[in-house]
């Protein structure tokens, strides 16, 4: 399976919004041209993207579905959250992160569930709006909740 790193995915997302030259990808994702060229070279050698002498584009849909496989999505989430945790504790003021452990009654849990649903609806709505904005300007947001018991149980299961 083709494993895709967060850096490669950013380049792919940029190409996904329209075929581009290396320079335009660099402007779009905010990485230097040398980094972009190095990533493009890797993606080309994996057969994911092609170059027509001017701009880069996707090669085939099969590779694309491989890139979006569950394993690769899992890796991406791990890389993003890992990177956010490192940046947060390195006191990067651009990174906001909260993790709380709280007890809730059934009714409070219902309220929380509704609030999360509202948040999800709001974000889904944002995704449907077409905007002319750089890939690098996107906000990266994640949320989720579980019970402590299930988390501890899964942790033991995964490491036994």
């Amino acid at each position: 399976m083709n494993k895709v790193m967060m850096l490669e995915r950013a380049v792919l997302e940029s190409i996904g919004a329209g075929n581009k030259t290396a320079q335009r990808i660099s402007d779009d994702i905010g990485l230097t041209l040398t980094w972009v060229k190095s990533i493009l070279f890797q993606l080309q050698s994996k057969g994911v993207i092609g170059f027509d002498g001017y701009s880069y584009s996707f090669m085939n849909k099969e590779k694309l579905s491989e890139i979006n496989s569950e394993d690769n999505v899992k890796y991406e989430i791990k890389e993003i959250t890992n990177s956010m945790i490192e940046s947060y504790f390195a006191k990067n003021p651009k990174v906001g992160m909260k993790l709380q452990k709280v007890n809730m009654t059934d009714s409070e849990a219902e309220i929380f569930k509704t609030m999360l649903q509202n948040l999800e609806n709001f974000i889904s709505d944002l995704r449907t709006r077409k905007r002319q904005s750089k890939t690098s300007n996107q906000q990266v947001i994640f949320w989720g909740s579980t019970t402590y018991q299930s988390l501890l149980g899964d942790f033991i299961r995964n490491n036994c």
Binding site: L7, T34, K37, F41
Partner: peptide, 9 residues
Amino acid sequence: LSTESHLIE
């Protein structure tokens, strides 16, 4: 990737 990017530079 980093090594390659330095080489390109």
